[in-house]
Nucleic acid binder design. Structure first.
Lengths: 213, 213
DNA sequence: GATATAATGTGAATATATTCACATATACTA
DNA sequence: TAGTATATGTGAATATATTCACATTATATC
């Protein structure tokens, strides 16, 4: 388990998801090649990644799924549910608040926050609270992870406030890089950028196909 | 403009966004270091990337923003708006349908599709149409790009159908790798995975800080 | 106009990531 | 139980990506 860089860790979570899917299909054993196929990498990549994370199997026998998942869960952490808040309850924030995919990963959205008082719903199962209560909530409930889904113009300021209150990891949907100390983890989801690059490469492929004719 | 790999192209779009922001702030000239700071890379990375894309400036003088943007737009394409459809109008699909950030990038959502007939809204500005009309719509309107926001279990099948009808680029929100021919471009947005990796690295940082004490 | 300064542009050097290839161990077969 | 086939695990080799460093040249100054 050497330098655990982001790309490596991301792949390991992908492997785990794929292996869970295989388990639910009834499989008991897997080979590195099965995992590789499911995730779209080479089998030696899988074995090398496993090696770096001290995940071992049986020579000739592949990996016993239950054992492997147990070890992966130890390394990657799946012991307890993580409480997460959403800051900004516009379209994206609200969609994430209702997104069903987090639960099975042990991620629980515990509250939303919005500056628009008319959006406040204190009694909902997952309440939306006024923005003024954000810092206090983070401190009191010791929230460490937040989703940032506010308008671009407010994003940096809100991030600073969240970090100030104790947030240590942020998933940012504002389409720009936000500055932060290096002891804060920030992942960015930039939807416009994702589409733009798709459009670019579709154009390149079409260009190439045209040239081939 | 050699091997235009994804990571390089993505950075270039980021540079462009940052440069537009600087332009709107009233700047006329930029240096590689300004761009680097805005995007969070080194200045030599910026210059190297520019070099690969045949984007040049003036020695000692930096880059004239308007000239640079013109050249970037030629390389990266921003001549015409791109029509995009959304398949699956659940929480995420609907949020994307309403997302304001696409427009300024020349991306126009022209329709949503859903298997649930009760969601159909033919007369809306951006209509939601029944899933049965998807293939015909793609063919008739020559749609090339689609956002896939259907449940995990349906994703592969729907992707195949979209590609069959003529889609060449897909932004996939289902949390798994989908198989496709290599002349189809697929980008994945895996929200659970993003949060998981944040949680992982927050844990690592906390562990490290604990050990330091 | 001459000189000093500062930024680009890019090969070369370095760092990082992936793949190769094979010794090793284990499961299966007969 | 001996023999064979096959998958792992990992150093070494390769490929890819980033950074260095400096020659070059435009701008600013005097």
């Amino acid at each position: 388990m050497k330098k655990a860089n982001k790309i490596l860790v991301t792949r390991l979570y992908r492997y785990r998801d794929a292996i869970y899917r295989m388990k639910y299909m009834g499989l008991v054993k897997v080979f590195s090649e099965n995992i590789a196929d499911a995730v779209g990498v080479t089998s030696s990549q899988v074995r090398k990644d496993f090696s770096l994370f001290k995940l071992s199997g049986n020579k000739r026998g592949g990996y016993v799924i239950d054992d492997l998942l147990k070890k992966m869960n130890e390394s990657l952490g799946k012991n307890r549910t993580q409480d997460v808040i959403i800051v900004g309850c516009g379209h994206i924030g609200t969609a994430l608040k209702l997104y069903k995919g987090f639960e099975k990963k042990g991620i629980r959205i515990v509250a939303g926050f919005d500056i628009d008082e008319s959006k406040v719903t204190r009694d909902a199962k997952v309440p939306i609270l006024p923005f003024q209560e954000l810092s206090q909530f983070i401190k009191t409930k010791k929230i460490k992870i937040g989703i940032l889904a506010v308008p671009e113009t407010a994003a940096q300021q809100v991030l600073d406030q969240m970090v100030q209150a104790g947030i240590e990891g942020i998933l940012n949907f504002a389409p720009m890089r936000l500055s932060h100390q290096e002891n804060v983890v920030v992942n960015n989801v930039n939807l416009g950028l994702e589409l733009e690059t798709i459009i670019y490469f579709v154009g390149e492929i079409e260009k190439k196909q045209y040239e081939e004719k």
